[in-house]
Computed example of a mutant assay.
Amino acid sequence: MENMSRSHNVELQAVPESRSENIMTIFKKFCNTIGMTIDDTQITACRRVAKMNEKSKRPRNILETLSSPRLRDTILSLTRRFNKSAKDPSNMLNSSHLGLAASSATRIYVTEHISPQCKFLYAETRKVAKEKKYDFV
């Protein structure tokens, strides 16, 4: 049930935060950057969510609820394509693509919205994979 309730959601991680930000505008700039036109009617909700680890220096994640899982999958696919097309790792999706003022361009990550338990399991799996020098998880 938790996965089904999150099936319309996409999560943007490490997007710099400011007091006067408009999350809807940031998300639309993100969509334009990856080559997708999105209409206001396709976005059900957008918000910053609380941190899992309060001591973390990373900004709060942006959570977007979309009108369909297919739209979410399209966004994830276009993001992967955008990042793969970047010849230089510094050209992968970052804060400068969204026009966010920061001292340096920070990398932005786009993922499916999964439960905290799944996030923990995935992080532990990546940690073990790194220790064992696996190429893929």
Rank of each mutant, 00 (worst) to 15 (best):
N22L: 06
I23T: 11
T25G: 06
F27R: 03
T33C: 04
T33R: 02
M36F: 13
I38P: 06
I38A: 08
I38D: 04
I38C: 04
I38Q: 05
D39V: 07
D40F: 01
D40W: 00
T41P: 00
I43T: 04
T44V: 10
T44S: 15
C46Q: 01
R47T: 07
R47N: 11
V49S: 14
A50W: 13
K55I: 09
K55A: 15
S56R: 07
K57R: 15
K57F: 15
R58F: 15
R58W: 14
P59W: 13
R60Q: 14
N61T: 10
I62D: 08
I62T: 07
E64D: 03
L66S: 02
S67A: 02
P69A: 10
P69W: 08
D73R: 13
T74L: 12
L76N: 02
L78M: 14
R80S: 09
R80F: 10
R80V: 11
N83T: 08
M92N: 01
N94I: 13
S95G: 08
S96N: 08
H97G: 00
H97P: 00
L98H: 03
A101K: 08
A105P: 05
A105L: 03
R107H: 12
I108E: 01
V110I: 06
V110M: 02
T111L: 01
E112P: 09
E112R: 15
H113P: 00
C118R: 09
C118M: 10
K119F: 04
K119C: 04
F120C: 04
